[in-house]
Amino acid sequence: MNTNEFWALIGDAARDGGTPDTVADRAATTLASRDTSEIVGFEQHLRRVLDASYKVDLFGAAYLVNGGCSDEGFDAFRGWLMAQGRDAYARAVGEPDSLAELPAVRRAALTGEELGSEKMLAVAATAHRTATGTELPEEPAAKRPNTDDFWDFDNEDEVRRRLPRLAALFNEAPLE
């Protein structure tokens, strides 16, 4: 599975809208109907996408948007971000502050909703189990950055400097 096929499958699953978990369910159903090698290829590509997106400033953005973030929370946040589509994902990886443009992020600033989807991370595992009745062969865990490279995500001045649009959105929004 190549990059275009990976994102096309996600885009097709998102076409009718719904939550990221609904998108994940649709993607898993579609993927389960394909050859096992494509299911494994989807998982391998997902790992590459996760590895490429493990950026400190994107982690900081997830921390701000979700009111805190663990490694697992960051994975789930990126699962949610995948369900937003290729363009939104690529934009956020290159410029995490661009997340301020997404309607769901703007809504989260008002409601305090946490954005994440573990189901998006399990699309291939679900498809493989459905198609074969067996577990997906394990892939190496997604890489993790050195936490020494993290900046202080609770430092409001640093947040405003690195993520000005998100900082304005979340500092001005009345949380319930």
Results as ranks from 00 to 15, higher is better:
S53F: 06
S33I: 05
R129D: 03
G11C: 10
A61L: 08
P140W: 05
E158L: 15
M82P: 02
V159P: 02
L46D: 00
L58H: 04
A167P: 04
E156P: 10
L64I: 11
S70V: 01
E176Y: 10
Q84E: 07
G60L: 01
N146R: 14
R107W: 09
T126H: 05
A83D: 03
F150T: 09
A32T: 10
A141P: 03
A52T: 09
M120G: 04
P137H: 11
D16T: 13
L58S: 01
A100G: 04
G73N: 04
G68V: 00
F153S: 04
W151I: 11
D51L: 07
A108V: 05
L9E: 10
D35P: 09
R78G: 01
A131M: 09
D87A: 13
A62G: 15
L110M: 11
A167S: 15
G112M: 03
A90R: 15
E5V: 14
A124L: 04
G94R: 14
D21S: 15
N2F: 11
L46I: 03
G116P: 02
P145D: 05
E138P: 05
A61Q: 09
T111S: 15
T134H: 14
G60E: 02
L46T: 02
D21I: 06
V49I: 13
G68P: 05
R160P: 05
